[in-house]
Design a protein around this nucleic acid. Sequence first.
DNA 1: ATAGAGCACGAAATCGTATTCTGAGGAAGT
DNA 2: ACTTCCTCAGAATACGATTTCGTGCTCTAT
Lengths: 338, 338
Amino acid sequence: MRAAKLKQVEIARLAGVSQATVSRVLKGNPQVKEELRQRVLAVVQELGYVPDARAQSLRSQRTRLIGLVVHRAPAALAGDPFFSALIAAIIEHAAKHDYHLCVDTARTARSQRAIYEELLRTRRVDGLILVESETRDRRIERLTSEGFPFVLIGRYEPEDATYSVDNDNIGAAHMATDYLIRTGRRRIAYIGGPAGLTVTRDRLQGYRNALEAHGIPYDPHRVMFTDFSERSAANAMAELLSLSPHPDAVLALDDVIAACAMLEAKRRGVRIPDDIAFVGFNDSPLCRYVEPELTSVVVDIPLLAGKATETLIALVEGRAPEAKRQIVPTRLVKRESA
Amino acid sequence: MRAAKLKQVEIARLAGVSQATVSRVLKGNPQVKEELRQRVLAVVQELGYVPDARAQSLRSQRTRLIGLVVHRAPAALAGDPFFSALIAAIIEHAAKHDYHLCVDTARTARSQRAIYEELLRTRRVDGLILVESETRDRRIERLTSEGFPFVLIGRYEPEDATYSVDNDNIGAAHMATDYLIRTGRRRIAYIGGPAGLTVTRDRLQGYRNALEAHGIPYDPHRVMFTDFSERSAANAMAELLSLSPHPDAVLALDDVIAACAMLEAKRRGVRIPDDIAFVGFNDSPLCRYVEPELTSVVVDIPLLAGKATETLIALVEGRAPEAKRQIVPTRLVKRESA
DNA sequence: ATAGAGCACGAAATCGTATTCTGAGGAAGT
DNA sequence: ACTTCCTCAGAATACGATTTCGTGCTCTAT
């Protein structure tokens, strides 16, 4: 059945040295004479020995595993290009430091706690990357108080002493809204995700700031929230179109929501961008597949993921991260929808 | 700093029992009197003790981690709805058995080997789910010969004694091609992924079978391969359109490729579905965002992922899986593009 | 020649849990 | 009353690597 597992002590016996020496050679400890080193390496090569990660984890108190917890139901995750991009980029960066990625989803509040316990308290992972946190998330205090290494993506509270990597959501939404205003739109709507998410709030704030800067009154009827499902995005759009006059532009929290909203608008015979303009977020490949092509705010996901990963690994390894809060620049890619 | 780590031996001391008893209580070993059990549980509750997964892994020789290795460059993964759906579904199923998911990408052949060594030989994961394997993949023999638990998605070789979960790619492609033929298409093209992938080959086979069944000659000029990049899909489409007469239908390996090809076709002024029909695979949300909406073969990804996960965990835990080869049914969702 | 320093290595402790081994105590059977 | 059996829990060990400690040995300086 399963091949007999090779242990250091066997390598040691075959090389005629002690197990400690084998370990030293493999760890690159310079306190080993060249001759012995060669002898050990020869046996290691010959037998294809690889150290057992489980034993290393216990001994070193490090699993070399970082966790990513996504607060979404699998269904809401399924078609989302943001997460595949994020996951791919994190894996890539983690691999450079010889870390692996453990991904978990947590749909309910209860399972969030469970996953948090499971991953963290059990020391199953060395650190955590959290995305889409809610504005008041008690877990964050707890992570902090336990001194557990973690990095937030897309959430920032001035009072926290946490590390975070951010899009400047407020600024980006401001910029996008400003663009809509300067292209003549006045009745601009906003479709966010769940109301509790920091991203939803921050982009709403940026949207409001832009309106205010142009002296356009803020109308709460033009603000909608979704649960990231297609249906809720379509419903939000339907509701916006039932206003009279209906909005002449929509700023959506992400490209998927924008695409669903556009679909609903087209279904109801509204012309895009003539009657209504759309702007999304993330500049996912999706933007070029929809018709008209979707104008979107580019969020540099690889960069975002890279900074988050580097910061987390620095924390795990006790080095000083680059900065407490890092901002990734954004820019608007103009296409046909706005 | 980091909260002092609680050990079983401390719980034992506080409860006035031995460490072994604490372990027994936590493992649900019935050989413990109710009184002691309660006393131990009280202390565990009180202090919020959670066992250390690293020590458990070493002792039990199980990490409760399953690996998913994706053979794609991060860029090609970034926007792909198939993988986010797959990952989400695997996580969901694994969680039911108290397993977690470790995801890795492997772009080059060299890094594939490296990841394979890293995850498997080090016993970092208990088992592996492999997707998009190449038809002749030497790693598979090696996994088999080492007796390591693994499950293949979308690859099946009659001679292997491996476990696999499959879409019946040949049948599905046959069905989709048949549909195109019966709606009057005769010059049907096929755009696959990399030529070495089993999925690419199997669907090509199904496509050829359908042509043959209808007595339509097979024309290799109408068969294209891509590397999953948008550019290569667009190039493939451009090349197909340069044929004269150009194809009147395209069967694409997945929805993303189909969407890119449609985009290129529209860019060149070809009307869909009048001049050319399109069929994709996966029925991703994307299908409804493109215009015209994309006809696609539904692959039940949650079911696929569920069967793969259950099979793998059964193998890991030494139970007999349901079957060596499991087939997930597919069906065609007709929309506007064909 | 000898003390002191430094090097290279082996022996042994350690990481935290699961399990086997062992023994104390009690119940049951003759 | 004595053996036998069973139950329960503590002691000891194993999992496989890393690291501390200690010890010969070599090398240098006096």
